[in-house]
Structures are given as structure tokens and as C-alpha cells.
Design a protein around this nucleic acid. Sequence first.
DNA 1: TTATAAAGTGTAATAAAGACACTAAGGTTT
DNA 2: AAACCTTAGTGTCTTTATTACACTTTATAA
Lengths: 246, 246
Amino acid sequence: MTQMRVLNNYISVDCVIFGFDFDKLNVLVVERTLTNDDGVVDFSDLTLTGNHIFEEETIVEAADRILFDLTGLADIYLEQFKTFASPDRLKKENDRKWLLHDGRDPDKRIVSIGFFALLATQKVTLEWKGRNIKWLPVDEVKSLAFDHNLILEEALKALRSKLLHEPIGFELLPDKFTLSQLQKVYEIILDTTFDKRNFRKKVARMKYLIPLNEKQQGVAHKPAQLYLFSREVYEKTRKEILNFLV
Amino acid sequence: MTQMRVLNNYISVDCVIFGFDFDKLNVLVVERTLTNDDGVVDFSDLTLTGNHIFEEETIVEAADRILFDLTGLADIYLEQFKTFASPDRLKKENDRKWLLHDGRDPDKRIVSIGFFALLATQKVTLEWKGRNIKWLPVDEVKSLAFDHNLILEEALKALRSKLLHEPIGFELLPDKFTLSQLQKVYEIILDTTFDKRNFRKKVARMKYLIPLNEKQQGVAHKPAQLYLFSREVYEKTRKEILNFLV
DNA sequence: TTATAAAGTGTAATAAAGACACTAAGGTTT
DNA sequence: AAACCTTAGTGTCTTTATTACACTTTATAA
């Protein structure tokens, strides 16, 4: 990239990066610490991962860049879900201080385009570039900076809806995964439980979940068969689902 | 509204206003004509309905305002579906001319937040305020200004997906509608056909479609029973649908 | 060797989907 | 007034999907 001028001060991209660890859903957060001129910490809290957009950069490129900067990963599932533009979205006291410190006018409205990303937590090495980031279980998230609680909530809604209607569950798992792991993804995100046999009957009809000649290793119980998602098979066999809702 | 300053030059709202006329899906378009200083028409084409955002105005308020300005209607179904921000989205020759004529820098990127609206075409009196607008059947839309063909396409995708998963079909009909009209909404938008009896079996399970003690009038055939959508019943009886896809 | 932990499997009952054709009730035409 | 046209409205059977439910298998750990 030759020129790196920021697009303008009014538009940014926020990424809600979801990570699943076989047990719960986490979100990647960044520590925001404002230090006064005399070196004293004014406040410290947590934000979602957001950034400006460069001139000549598309918003998807910007979101990919944020993702790569934080995790070192490319080709992560990423989806634009909503844009946030309320006039008072960055008007809390700490947010105004932060923007001012950052050389931005806290009275100007900033529009943020929200993306969510899906990955398996263990793919990320958190020490990447020494950024102060961490995984936070979604149901332990307290007060976030800016309007990021709202953004997270909307991201969760979008994720749940997408999970119900399109095959994206495995995006939260390693490339090779077991059916129990997949079931857990659905159970945690939709906050429910499924009967194991019925779940597997359903999965058996998803021809794009390909069983491998390979099993789990090193587990203290009967090792499970590993599966793979085939986008090719999915594209070929997907029927436009006309069983609309009741 | 006391002050009407425009938020900034970089952000706008585009509304894809869908109207159904019992027969086909239409979209509201505005004629864009650029007249030179010597009164000669340079070009004339069609755009979707978009506008700037005022300071202190939320984007939903801006979208509502656009809708009201064009149709004279309030309380119309409206949904944010996607934001468009490609660096070259307004870079076609005519678009550059138009922006220049409008006093805007054609080299600046403008981010547009896309909404779609649903209504029954006959609700709109097109002569409202003498604006040069018209209904265009969606499948007769040719080349539109800016990136509006893309925006329309994405709006259609969002509409189809929403229609499959949430009860919004009646938003395209008068308050009181017949089951055949509702069936037609699904058939036209999803580009398919349904068996009448099976469709009605399905509808019978949707308790939020309330049959009225009222029939169609003045039709040259057996008059149909009229139905009403009850949001109240819907909210009460909706089950979170866990029958996820195959 | 025994304990533990999760994997993997079948059947019967109920509900929904899908295929399919005729009668009813208005207005219009002759 | 009769015939006609158009859309409304209805039932059954077959196939497929959902739901409820419990035991055996296979690996590691103790």
C-alpha cells in the first residue's frame, strides 16, 4: 500500500471477533487505557476491535486488516452485519476524553460499520505484536467503551440468525471437527440443548459435512470421527429452502 | 427541527422502496436529469431514493424522512440491510458530473447506508410534491445511477432472506388482505409457486394471521375472506425456530 | 483391572410436507 | 335468465422430518 492516509474522521470499522473454545463463546477485546500527561492512568476499560479506513481501501479490506493486525490470521469468516451512527454513540465522558486525546473532535459524529468474525480461539496467538488484547467470554462482558455493548448485542443477534439459516457453525471450529463439537456450537450460541441422536440424524442429511478417515487423538475416551465442511458440496446441493416459518 | 445542517458530505442514506401491486414487485425510482448552464439536458437517468443525514438526526430518522418526503407516508416497514462504501462507487462519468454540479467533490468517497422499505404500491400517491418519481417493476430495472444496481440487488437478497425467516409478507399488502394475495407475495419474491392447499395448511398454523368477518367486495368472482396480521399474537406465539437448515 | 468419559447407534409415535382435482360464489356476457 | 368466467375454498394419502428415549463401545487414567 503506497499511501496510507485515513479516509476521513467520520467513518470507521468495528469488528466483533467471536472465538469458540469448545465450551463457550468468547469475544476479542482490547484494553483502552488513557494516561494523562503526567503519566497517571486516567481510566482503563475495554473496547471491541475497531479502526479507521484508509483511502482507497474497501471496508472489507479494512476489516480484514484489523483482523490480521490483531490475530495474525487471514481468510477468516467475516460478515458485515450493521452500521452504527447514533449522534450520541461516542458521547460518554471517557469516550470524549479518549477522542480528544487522540486528536479528534469529540463533537463530530463517527459512523461505524460493524462486522463480525468467526474463528476457533485456539487459532489465535494472543501475544501477537504485544497488543493488549484478550478473549472475554461473551456472557461475562460487562460495560464496554463507546456503544460497544450495543454493537456486541447486535452482532450476537446477527450471528444467531445466520447460524439458524446458513451453515457457518464450523467456522468456529478447527478445520477438522467432531459432531459433538459442532453440536456444542449450536447449543451454546442458540442457548439450548439438542438430543444427540436427533442432531446426528439431521447432520446426516447435510451432505456437505464430509466424514474423514481420521479420528480424534489423545482424548481420554472413545475418539470421535473427524468431519470436514465442503463448500463445493454445499454450493451444489443447497436447495433454496422454501419451508418458511410458522 | 431547528437546525438543518447536513451531517457531512461523506455519509448518506439510500432507501430501496419496494411496492407490491398484487402482481409484481416494484421499486421506487427518481429521475435524475442534469441540465447544463445553457439549459440543454446533458443526461437523464434513474436513481434509487437517497439523501444526506442532518446533524442530530439518527439514520433511521433520515430514512423515515426520505420515505415521507417521497410518499407522504409514515410508519412504513423499514430495515437497514447493508452499507456501501466502495472507493469507486460514485466514479462513473455521469456520477462525477452530477456530484460536481451538486457542489460536491467527486473524488471524495461517500458511504451510503442502505435501507429497504416495504409497502403496497397503491398506498402511494405519486404526485406528492411534484417529485419526478415512479414505480418500476424490479425485473424491468436497467442501468441505474451510481452503484444503485448493486444496492438494489443486495436489497433483494436481504428481502428474500427476511421473507423466508420472518413474517413480513403482509407489509407489502393493504392492512386487510386475502390469502391468495399473501401467497402471491411469496411466489413473486421467491420466484416460485406454491400449491394453494398446502400453502393454506401452512398459514393455518400461523396463529397471528387473523381471519376477519369480512370479505372482498366488488370482485368478479367469489369474494375472498380478509385477514389481518396481529403483531401481538406473533410476539406471544413465536417459537424460536430451532429447525435449522439442511 | 477397573473406572471414567464421551462416542456412537435404532425405533416407534407424531407432525409436517408434498402431490393432487373438484365445487362454490360472485360478477359479466349474451 | 342462463351461461360463462374467474378466483375462493376444501380433503386425503404418501413421504419425509421431528421428537422422545437408553444402552454399548472404545479410548485414556488411576
